[in-house]
Design a protein around this nucleic acid. Sequence first.
DNA 1: TCCTCTACATTGTTTTACTATGTACCAGTA
DNA 2: TACTGGTACATAGTAAAACAATGTAGAGGA
Lengths: 106, 106
Amino acid sequence: MQGLTELLKGSLEGIVLQHIGHGETYGYEITHYLIDLGFEDIVEGTVYTVLLRLEKKGLLTVERRKSAVGPQRKFYQLNAAGEAYLQEFWTKWDFLAQKMTQLKED
Amino acid sequence: MQGLTELLKGSLEGIVLQHIGHGETYGYEITHYLIDLGFEDIVEGTVYTVLLRLEKKGLLTVERRKSAVGPQRKFYQLNAAGEAYLQEFWTKWDFLAQKMTQLKED
DNA sequence: TCCTCTACATTGTTTTACTATGTACCAGTA
DNA sequence: TACTGGTACATAGTAAAACAATGTAGAGGA
């Protein structure tokens, strides 16, 4: 789906965190995962800026390791702060989603 | 609920449009409606910028009328373009919400 | 050698919402 | 009359988030 750009603002961070929470991963994989999910417009640059931001906030642990098929990968995992942040994100999301449903239906 | 700022980016426009779609209204009323809905952080300035943006996009019809209790009010209504835009918005929102649920649950 | 896919990164721009502030009208009251 | 509080709109400046464009570089295959 296209044109989700503006709506995605604010959610993308949570989406990326949630995916990392499913298991260690790296930027390039995340990008393609998001595109496969249906966020066609997502480009690599966007994902990397999100990752660097999350890293800067201290929500991720990072480890560089070699890949068999290309340059080194930067593997990310959630740390405790990341888990907490993710939980908070879902609380906010659930609130918003509930309000949106309410708005839409009445 | 507080701290929704970032999540709200992209949704606020749709929320305001949807509310206007329920019937003619004006900025001050919208602001208080949103706060009552639970978006405590919303301030007047934000709502007015959204309204001016929507107006500039040609999605609203505008009419100034006197109020019994204060200065003139600027009443907004959705026009055809606004209706179409709102429908598009909900399509995108539904897509995002569905993906978020999917993400959260697996 | 050249191309493609993999992989990360940065610089600059646009969009969106917030902060702060200002203007102004009206009613009640001291 | 002067002051206060509620109503109502508006704008200038700032911060955050995502995008666009671009660059670097490794590995494998034609």
